[in-house]
Amino acid sequence: MADDDAAEAANLNYWAYWMGALREPQANDRFMADRALTGWDPVTLLRGLARGFVESPGYVDLYAHSLWALLTAHPSLPQASPALAHSLAGRVARILDDGVISSRSRRELGAVHYVLRDQQH
């Protein structure tokens, strides 16, 4: 997915489907090609990814990348749910402190942490 805008959009669109953030049911997978990331609620997706990030530590790299992609596409998203952003920032900080993640996840989570903390001020 790295450096492939179509793949990044498909990833976020699929997560939105999986996490119940899509506004309409989908009859096929064409919705995943929507690069504009329309048709789903980013706050619902953020909540779902944050929950999965905490509950599925074995998939930290996948959640880290998806959180990074979502916050890259919607950098002001933490303002829509400050309590969630605060909680997620704490979890991200702990994972960064533990140091048991890939270098790519470390970079992406560093960017996520920056966006989450920046929105709190």
Results as ranks from 00 to 15, higher is better:
residue 42 P to V: 05
residue 112 V to N: 05
residue 74 H to R: 09
residue 52 G to D: 08
residue 49 L to Y: 05
residue 121 H to N: 09
residue 25 P to T: 09
residue 21 A to Y: 02
residue 92 V to K: 04
residue 43 V to K: 07
residue 103 S to P: 06
residue 102 S to Q: 04
residue 17 Y to I: 12
residue 7 A to R: 15
residue 35 R to K: 11
residue 93 A to F: 02
residue 117 R to Q: 07
residue 85 A to K: 06
residue 77 L to M: 02
residue 45 L to W: 05
residue 81 S to L: 15
residue 4 D to N: 12
residue 69 A to H: 09
residue 54 V to W: 00
residue 73 A to I: 08
residue 30 R to W: 05
residue 53 F to E: 05
residue 59 Y to D: 14
residue 24 E to Q: 11
residue 57 P to W: 01
residue 106 R to N: 04
residue 114 Y to T: 07
residue 2 A to E: 00
residue 44 T to W: 07
residue 63 Y to N: 00
residue 29 D to C: 01
residue 83 A to D: 05
residue 60 V to S: 07
residue 41 D to L: 06
residue 102 S to D: 03
residue 6 A to Q: 10
residue 20 G to F: 10
residue 49 L to P: 03
residue 17 Y to R: 15
residue 46 L to H: 10
residue 98 D to F: 07
residue 43 V to D: 04
residue 71 L to F: 08
residue 76 S to Y: 10
residue 14 Y to M: 05
residue 93 A to R: 12
residue 101 I to R: 06
residue 102 S to I: 05
residue 49 L to M: 08
residue 100 V to E: 03
residue 19 M to L: 13
residue 90 G to A: 11
residue 45 L to K: 00
residue 56 S to A: 09
residue 6 A to R: 11
residue 57 P to C: 01
residue 9 A to R: 15
residue 88 L to P: 09
residue 95 I to C: 10
residue 54 V to D: 02
residue 14 Y to G: 08
residue 33 A to E: 07
residue 8 E to L: 09
residue 114 Y to K: 03
residue 75 P to L: 02
residue 5 D to C: 12
residue 6 A to P: 00
residue 26 Q to I: 05
residue 49 L to W: 04
residue 28 N to G: 12
residue 108 E to F: 11
residue 53 F to H: 13
residue 47 R to T: 00
residue 30 R to I: 03
residue 72 T to Y: 15
residue 3 D to Q: 15
residue 50 A to N: 01
residue 8 E to H: 08
residue 121 H to V: 14
residue 57 P to A: 01
residue 80 A to R: 13
residue 66 S to E: 14
residue 27 A to D: 14
residue 67 L to Q: 03
residue 107 R to S: 11
residue 28 N to W: 15
residue 99 G to W: 09
residue 52 G to I: 11
residue 29 D to V: 03
residue 82 P to Y: 02
residue 35 R to E: 02
residue 114 Y to P: 00
residue 49 L to D: 03
residue 33 A to N: 08
residue 64 A to R: 09
residue 118 D to Y: 12
residue 30 R to N: 14
residue 61 D to Q: 09
residue 69 A to D: 06
residue 13 N to G: 14
residue 8 E to K: 14
residue 86 H to F: 01
residue 84 L to W: 10
residue 48 G to K: 01
residue 68 W to L: 01
residue 77 L to P: 00
residue 20 G to I: 03
residue 7 A to W: 06
residue 8 E to V: 12
residue 48 G to W: 11
residue 8 E to Q: 13
residue 48 G to L: 03
residue 25 P to V: 08
residue 120 Q to Y: 10
residue 32 M to F: 04
residue 15 W to Q: 05
residue 29 D to S: 04
residue 93 A to Y: 04
residue 63 Y to P: 00
residue 18 W to N: 14
residue 103 S to N: 10
residue 59 Y to C: 07
residue 13 N to K: 14
residue 52 G to M: 13
residue 47 R to I: 00
residue 85 A to Y: 06
residue 38 T to M: 02
residue 6 A to L: 06
residue 92 V to G: 08
residue 17 Y to N: 13
residue 2 A to C: 07
residue 18 W to D: 13
residue 65 H to T: 11
residue 105 S to T: 13
residue 31 F to C: 13
residue 93 A to G: 14
residue 104 R to T: 12
residue 52 G to R: 15
residue 104 R to F: 01
